[in-house]
Design a protein around this nucleic acid. Sequence first.
DNA 1: CGGCAGAAAGTAAGTACGCACTTAGCGCCG
DNA 2: CGGCGCTAAGTGCGTACTTACTTTCTGCCG
Lengths: 207, 207
Amino acid sequence: MSAPEFFPKLRLKSDDRRSQILAAALDVFAELGFHGARTRDLAERAGVSEALLFRHFATKEDLVRAILESVGFEERIGMMEDHFTKLPPREGLCRIAEYSLTALRDDPRVFRVIFFGVLEVPDLAGEFYRKFLSRLLALETRLFERAFAERGARRAAQDAAVAARSFHGSLFFYQMTGAIVRIEPLPKNPKERAEAIVNLYLPEEAA
Amino acid sequence: MSAPEFFPKLRLKSDDRRSQILAAALDVFAELGFHGARTRDLAERAGVSEALLFRHFATKEDLVRAILESVGFEERIGMMEDHFTKLPPREGLCRIAEYSLTALRDDPRVFRVIFFGVLEVPDLAGEFYRKFLSRLLALETRLFERAFAERGARRAAQDAAVAARSFHGSLFFYQMTGAIVRIEPLPKNPKERAEAIVNLYLPEEAA
DNA sequence: CGGCAGAAAGTAAGTACGCACTTAGCGCCG
DNA sequence: CGGCGCTAAGTGCGTACTTACTTTCTGCCG
């Protein structure tokens, strides 16, 4: 659990305190998971009393939800949909993979909180799928459809859906082992690895 | 939680009772997760008192460990290593995929317990990686190495490791969405889907 | 075949403690 | 001086695990 952060005990504006608590909570939830994190830990890490914590967030579950909200998935996925759809499909997929691997390297905490949340808070699983995963899968499926079409129409439409799921699973592997099991080392160079992964599905030489 | 099972209240031999408790626990842990399952639930489902439960398993954590033990991973993976290494690499990979998808369809509970255990019981993550995942990855890597070698030595050795991880991730996707999120439907025909997945990595026509 | 001792299977009723969440009130800033 | 930020000190409930005790089986001796 380490020492509580050493904030000078200032009086903060409500919003500032709120986001400071959120930041601390991201840390603690990532380390300990939802059930593992005690409200005491959360308050301590933020350098405030438990009472204040409950003034800002009615329940512990609300706090996780607020974290996931603050990450801004909706916008991020929207942005991906906007930008990557236009790209050549191969590149679109590279960008998705690179984006995922980079985010993972830069801050695995977010992935940990998601995994913990999805497993430990039953409602969150479906919510996450609806708001995020299903949209990403749809985007990936469209990209694969186009990629397959470009290389001769040998493949059925269903193949693109299967490819998208397998591809997304590949990214999953890194998220899971990098953020949760934490034994496999994360790829040093996300861009390079992203291309290597896409190459498995859409070999360059065949282009 | 549903009604407690309707076992006639027999006196059982220690070993029989033990495995009956294990069976019930598999059910409950799969439904509720490690923290979510109360020892009360576990006892109720098995139709015995909590005291008896603790006579058989010293702690709740021991009980999960015993479940994972009873699944017999060590033997299963050993068997895979023995049999699948000899096969043509493409077929070996198909069999691994098929095995995973079939097991998932037949009893997702096991996968749920693993996921929950790995996330909620920190020690279990490393343990699981060492005993199981790393060995499977090694097997898959060897198969990819051979497959790549057969099709002209264009690829570096590292590629096989990346391919194995991506491939395993693809299986992961189904385990995760099938067992945890439970929105995506599981593939109806595991064998067919297994081949479709392997095809993405090693297209038939190129053979 | 009793019958009886001792082990093994089982339980009802705790216990102690950890945890999410409250209450009642203090003091600083505008 | 009013209200906003903040806290010390609860509260009560849920839960993993125990204790102390009863019931049933088993094997052995006369």
